[in-house]
Amino acid sequence: MSLSEYLKDRFLEGTGARLLLLPALALIAIFVVFPVVWNVYVSLTNYALTGPRARIYGFIGLENYIRIFRDPSFYNTLRVSFLFTLFSAIIGQAFLGLGIALALRMREPEGILGKITRALKITASTLVFVAWIIPEVVAGYAWSAITSKGGLVSMLLGVNENIYVKYPFETIVVANVWRGTAFSMILFMAALEGIPQYIYEAAEIDGAGPWKRFRHIILPLISHAILVDFILITIWTYGVFTMPFMIVGPSGQGGPAQIWTLYVYYNAINVYEVAYAATAANIMFLIVLAMIIVYLRVMGFLRRWW
């Protein structure tokens, strides 16, 4: 069998096919898996960004981990991250997203009133969508500007100061709700569209009012979507970096808004303690991993039972 015959007929039949996985697997292995492992190694050393410890650094065991669990700023960042995720993802994005999705499904009356309703729906949903897709740095910049001294928010609140300095945590929470609501909105829109019209009609014939329809028909039917949404936006919000970085800087205005991603960056780049930052990153990664595992379990469960 000639080589070209071999390549044509045999190559893609057997193990050869698996070679096609190689580019993807190599990229992932070198730039995703290996770095994660390397991060663990770095966290066991005293590596620094500059100075003598950037060139000659040694293995120091679990010292960084011992240090970090005694570091009040670490507990601060844990608390801030948790609250940020809770307020911004679950309370903010998910509920607002559900509200908008429901509003978008409201029936439009006939005539001019219907046209106005329709125009409002399109405008609102388009703006929500655009907020989600523009580059994150642009979103961060826009929010840092309107929360600056003299900006619209400071005018509305009657505070002639930089809002992101005075209320740094609240600012990044609201900004992130603004940024991320679209995902929940689209997800819930899809879930609502998945409910067949006849179910609404059957409920109406059975005499269910709007609230009862929502409570007993819609809510149970989209409960799986709510679950998926909660987990996904929690994971994403937990990993947010760029917008808070643009608005409150790596120190999180000296702590109150220092979510863990900022904490890691701050320690690595501003304080030069790379190994310490890696330590924090590893701990936070474990938390993300736990959430991802929950997500996989839930998805597996849904696929099987629902």
Binding site: V42, Y238, G239, A277, M284, V288
Partner: peptide
């Protein structure tokens, strides 16, 4: 689902 920063830090070191 891994946050990019988790990778960006060790990639910088490497």
């Amino acid at each position: 689902l891994i946050p990019p920063l988790i990778l960006a830090l060790p990639i910088m070191i490497l």
